[in-house]
Design a binder for these strands. Sequence first.
DNA 1: ATGTTGATTGGCT
DNA 2: GCCAATCAACATT
Length: 200
Amino acid sequence: MSRLDQSFFARDTVTVARSLLGQVLVHESAEGRAAGRIVEAEAYSGWDDRASHGHRGRTPRNAVMFGPVGFSYVYFIYGRYWMLNVIAKPPGVEYPAAVLLRALEPLSGLELMANRRSGRPQKEWTSGPGRLTLALGIDETHNQLDLTAADSPLYFEDGGSTDSLQINSGPRVGLGTVPEPWKSRPWRFWIADNAYVSRG
DNA sequence: ATGTTGATTGGCT
DNA sequence: GCCAATCAACATT
C-alpha cells in the first residue's frame, strides 16, 4: 500500500471528497498505530461557499485553507471536538478549500481505539467527525501538517480499487443558519449502507 | 471588552 | 427527540 500524494489532492475539491471514500487514514503515534477506511466526507470550497470557514477571507484559524494541497486543517468546535480536514483544490487556484473527514470504518489498532473511546460500542468509535479524531488521537498538534510527506505520522494510504463502491451524496451536515443555495449543495458523500456513516 | 455562534456529541426525557 | 456542555474564533461595541 502506498501513501496518497499531492496529485491526489490537486483536483477539484468535490471530486477529492468523493474519491477519498475507500481510502485509508492512518495515524502513527507513541501509543501505536490506528487506521480506518474513510466512509464519509464533505467538501467546503471557494470564496462564495457560505458554509465554509474560508468564505469571509483569511483569518489565523483558516489560513491553511488558502495554502497548498495535502495539508491538514484541524480546528476546535463546540468547546469539545477536533475536526480533521485535508486541503484539496486544482493546481494554480488560490481560493480556500478543504475536505472534512466525517467517518471511518475501523481497520487496525482496534484495541487502541477502544481505549481512546472508553468503553463505547465499536459503532460509535469513528462514526462522526468528532469521534474519529478522538479514536485516532488527533488534536491541535496535527494542524497544518503535510499529510503527503514521507515522514508524516498522519497520512492517507491507497485503499485499492473503489470501482465497486456504491456512493451516495446529499447536503452537508450541521449547517444551521447557512443560506441557500449553499445549504443544499450535495457536497457530502458516503458509502451506501456502511454501518460507520454518521447518518445513513 | 463583551456577546454570539458553531462543519458535534452524549445523556436524559 | 431534545438540549446542555464548553470555549475559541470572530463580529460588534
